[in-house]
Simulated scan of single mutants.
Amino acid sequence: MPKMDQVVIEVRDEIRRLRAGRGVFTTNLIDRLGPRLQAWCGTHHDSSQLRSTLTQRLLTSAGALSSDRQDALVVSLAIDPEVEHLVRFKDRVDHLAAQLAVSARTALRRIESAETELAGEIAAESAGATASGHFVKSYYVRQYQAIVDNTGAHGNPATVSVHQEREIVCVQDRLTEIPIRFEIPDHPDTAEPLFTARVQHGGRLRSQRRLSPTGFELTLSLPSAIAQREAHRFALSFVFPAGLIRAHHVITGEVQIQRYRLIVKFHPDHLPAWIRKVDGEDIRTLDAFARKAAAPPGAFPLDAVGEAHLEFRRLAPHLAYGFQYRWADSPGSLG
């Protein structure tokens, strides 16, 4: 049997052991967790912290599954507040069966199918040696769309516009704000940022600060507190001086991103010499490609109107996804 298949079976069995009794609310949670799940969410001797971490990680990983699979899991593991009072797994199976208008046997089969799918997600994350402590744990991104408009990069003023829209799903109850972090390595050391940022919908910009010589953070206040498993959409728009923007646009997420759609636009009179897809690379590899005059592997053409449409699914945190290009002629600068 392949090693990954064996890991999936072991994780699945540990999930099934967890569902007994009060599920994630069992009093001896640290003893109930098997070695795979302990390693996955980190060792926490504080049971309250372990329960919170485990619940958030389970919900985040289950976000890759269909909604009916997610519903089955939150009931079976007692994560759903509606079943917290049901102290026996059998009672929660009956609850799910009544919800779905099916037999208890069918409800149990659906739970077991969801457990196997979730085990596959957890096994894949574990194989990637993902350091969970480095992630934002309060939400994951179900969909993320960005439009990067380079059509004004040779104008006067020379600018690059970026429009972003995210749909997030909360895994920590009563989420009220979202940090948005990004890097601009070539931004000069000025008192005020040289770019502008606006919230188009779904929140209000509460603060903006510089975290480091290259890093910035925006804090977005949400219209109201978001409940666990609730979704929320918001959109931001940025305008950058073209001289600040390196010849790529990539994201290296600190949260789990299920789907990322990217549209890039160039002016028909100022097309790049080449453009390539960046799909799960170490950010440092972009520097090596930037020096290539000829089109590197993975290069692709723009369409007839100077656009490209890219899509990525189930992005690995801290790896780069997006596109890189090389200008045939230099864009505007900061002077």
Rank of each mutant, 00 (worst) to 15 (best):
M4C: 00
M4F: 03
D5Q: 00
E14Q: 00
I15S: 00
R19W: 04
A20K: 14
G23C: 05
T26H: 13
G34S: 01
R36F: 00
W40Y: 12
G42R: 10
G42W: 08
Q49C: 06
A62F: 12
A62D: 10
G63V: 00
A64M: 02
R69F: 09
Q70G: 12
S76G: 06
L77D: 09
K90F: 09
K90W: 08
A97Q: 04
A98L: 08
E112T: 02
A119M: 11
E121T: 08
T130V: 15
A131K: 09
H134G: 07
V136C: 14
S138Q: 14
Q143Y: 06
Y144W: 13
A146R: 02
V148C: 04
D149L: 01
N150A: 06
G155P: 15
N156D: 12
P157D: 07
T159C: 14
T159Y: 14
E165G: 07
R166P: 11
I168P: 08
V169T: 14
C170L: 03
D173A: 14
R181G: 15
F182P: 11
D186E: 15
D189R: 00
F195S: 04
A197I: 14
Q208C: 03
T214E: 15
G215Y: 02
F216R: 05
S224Q: 13
E230N: 08
F234Q: 00
F240K: 04
G243S: 01
L244F: 15
I257Y: 08
I263C: 07
F266P: 03
W274N: 05
R276E: 02
T285H: 15
A288D: 14
F289D: 12
A293F: 10
P296S: 08
F300H: 11
A304C: 10
V305Y: 12
H309E: 15
L310Y: 01
P317F: 12
H318F: 15
H318T: 14
P331I: 07
S333V: 02
